[in-house]
Design a protein around this nucleic acid. Structure first.
Lengths: 149, 149
DNA sequence: TATTGTTATACTCTATAACTATA
DNA sequence: TATAGTTATAGAGTATAACAATA
């Protein structure tokens, strides 16, 4: 006689969204890491530079949110990036508490020098995976961000 | 007369797959972190426990791959988990180089105690996002893993 | 009182290399 | 020679609290 089977609450680990997101991220980062190493950047610094290049000058709280870093980490990382002349900080004229951070020409040049090979990697992924599927995936990821969890 | 527009190689940051994966992961982890903190687990320890509960006893190289950790990190974390009686290590009888790691009853009990609330969080996401869309997202993430990049 | 950002601290993870033991 | 795992080490990120300056 079969035991009554209780509805299984257990998701197989490959169907756990947090783990799937992590694994997939690790997978797509594999070809990118050597490029970052070559230009002496950590992933975190790279995210900050990309955020600034894309969104323009920002206060630190916004940078932290956009680049998935905590403020204390950001403080330390920006200090090092400012010393390398990749970003520049200035006091907000309106609100004295705020610091506005912007990318420098040197920072922009670094992104430009890296861009062709990054784009090549992106295109390799896009052509293998399919342009439409990739857009669907990015759309779904963005949609999850809008959920109130 | 329109200028011939050079194909823009620059992806807006929200459409960068590595960054989208990171942001979405951060977003879905928000409600999970308090649970982990409550049972005194780091995300890494949790992944290891989940992998073992799901796939059974494994050698360390496999655990490292499955849980997205490096072997040196794994060595340290497993030492701490073994001290807490969450996992047990034993020499492989066939190949003396290998260590086989398994979850203990205490480790399993920890997962069980956490499961109902984790499932609740999962269901909240599923009901808001849509079961079908979530499955599509998980399918796409798994497909990316199969690409040779 | 609340917000922006910095500093301090303790812990943890990452990344690489060198090493041991086994195959 | 190659593989499995450990140890060592340096660097970096995480998380929290306490703090200063400004609003």
């Amino acid at each position: 006689m079969k035991k009554p089977i209780k509805k299984n609450q257990h998701r197989p680990i490959s169907r756990s969204l947090p783990i799937a997101l992590l694994r997939t991220r690790e997978h797509v980062m594999v070809p990118i890491r050597p490029l970052l190493a070559e230009i002496g950047m950590t992933e975190q610094k790279w995210r900050i530079l990309r955020v600034l290049a894309d969104l323009g000058a920002l206060e630190q709280t916004s940078i932290a949110r956009e680049s998935c870093l905590l403020l204390p980490s950001l403080t330390r990382i920006l200090r090092s990036m400012e010393a390398d002349d990749l970003v520049i900080r200035s006091q907000d004229t309106g609100d004295g508490r705020r610091t506005i951070v912007d990318i420098t020409d040197k920072g922009r040049a670094l992104i430009m020098s890296y861009q062709p090979r990054a784009f090549e990697i992106f295109q390799r992924l896009e052509s293998q995976f399919g342009k439409e599927k990739l857009e669907t995936l990015l759309d779904l990821l963005e949609e999850v961000l809008e959920l109130k969890l």
